[in-house]
Simulated assay, not measured.
Amino acid sequence: MALAALGIVVPTIAAIYEFLVKGRKRLGYRVQMDTTANDVGETAAPGALGELSKDGVALVDPSIVLLRIENTGRTNIDEHDYAVRDDDHAGIRVSFPGRRVVGVVVTELSDENLRSSLGGLTVRDDLVELPKVPMNRHDHYKLLAALDSADGTKKTDGAYPDPMVVGTIKGGVGGGRIIETRSRLGTSKRAMALIAFLAVLVVAQSVVFFRSSDELPIDCASGRLAIGGSTAFEPVVREAARSYQDACTAAEFDFEMRGSGEGLLSLDKAGEGAEMLAFSDGEKPDGMPGLVARPIAFVLFTLVVNADTGVRDLKAEQIRRLYRGEITNWKQIGGRDEAVRLISRNPGSGTRAAFQRRVLDGLREPGSNSDIAVIRILGRPAGWCDAPATRPKTCCAP
């Protein structure tokens, strides 16, 4: 169970991290080249690289930087997402410490639509100011910058500090942030570690499954259980028993659902230790101290009055008068001129017992009325009371 839970939790956490954390707006920058343009060897024809100049003056310590700007998030970046003032024309500022920018050209566009937005690119001292370029997912563009020493002296080691993003943009882009990215030629170490962990988890689950496939679940019981009691519970009980047997094949059930009263009486007679269970839709009667009630559900009882009676509503006192025999015709309570006929559950029914106790104030239904009707109904085919040819015109049944 613990392994199964991990099998669900780990991918869920990975998905949340991927889409909620990494999926925010992210603008990435990558320095793909930062090298000197000096002739450090014995080149016979240095050509243009040996003639880099600014306003006709040769560069003292020329260097070249190739910079890639890219949308690394999972959502688009709009010009309003750049975390700068609205009146600021620049969305990103890239600084080259210790150097001054001589010139910049755009060398690559992932989408030609980016060209019009890059018209506002400017250069100032050691800064390249990039405009607020709208970028769809996976969009990128590249800049090639020519630089020289800021103080006019040549570095003996040719090393300058790495280019860096400066200004307020470093704090965020549309709820995300700007990050320095790295070129990856394969799957990341984090992804490989996650795949390896999931693979181990799957193997462990398989081992546990195959070792336990021939054994019953730890919470299964075996043996035979007799179930009796309420006929109202029978469909639900049988379905529950089938579901239990599907998982616990060593369990067997016997059913004797003949009414709440009979079920409780059989259980009481069986005594302590009996492998028996009784369902009742009524309260446990007095005189059975050995039985312990365990409530499992709420049951709603109602009375049904035949529409042919003309009665649509009955008050509690009218119901009691009906069952006391004081009302014998429906016209006495505003209905049609039809004789009252009562139909009820059998005497051992928990439904009937609850009805007598809660509605009739504990008085038993008169046998000369409802019992006779029950005897007539029992033994008839299903739906007899609803058949127009045989249905009593006036029925009242709980």
Rank of each mutant, 00 (worst) to 15 (best):
E252N: 05
T72C: 12
I169T: 03
T181G: 12
R30V: 10
E112T: 15
L127E: 07
A58C: 07
V128R: 02
L66P: 00
H138W: 12
D386P: 00
D281N: 13
I377W: 07
T187W: 13
L300G: 00
R341P: 00
R238H: 07
A14D: 05
L49F: 15
S260D: 02
A193E: 07
I327M: 06
G167R: 05
R30E: 06
R68N: 01
R100F: 13
R358G: 05
R258V: 11
S368V: 15
I296R: 08
N76C: 11
D125V: 12
A270S: 05
A45G: 04
D157M: 00
Y323G: 00
G273Y: 04
V359S: 01
S149C: 11
A58E: 06
A159K: 14
L267K: 00
G23D: 10
T168V: 07
P295I: 01
L52A: 13
G259A: 12
Y29V: 12
T231C: 12
E283D: 10
R320G: 00
E108M: 12
D361F: 13
G98F: 03
R380Q: 10
F233C: 10
F19I: 15
F19C: 03
V200S: 04
I64A: 04
P62F: 14
D157C: 03
G259V: 05
L144H: 08
T156S: 09
N329P: 01
P366Y: 10
R93Y: 10
R182A: 06
R294I: 09
G325L: 13
V374I: 10
A387E: 13
A199Q: 03
T12F: 11
L27H: 02
A274Q: 05
K132N: 05
L66W: 08
G103K: 08
R294E: 03
P392C: 14
L303V: 11
G367R: 13
A278C: 11
C385P: 00
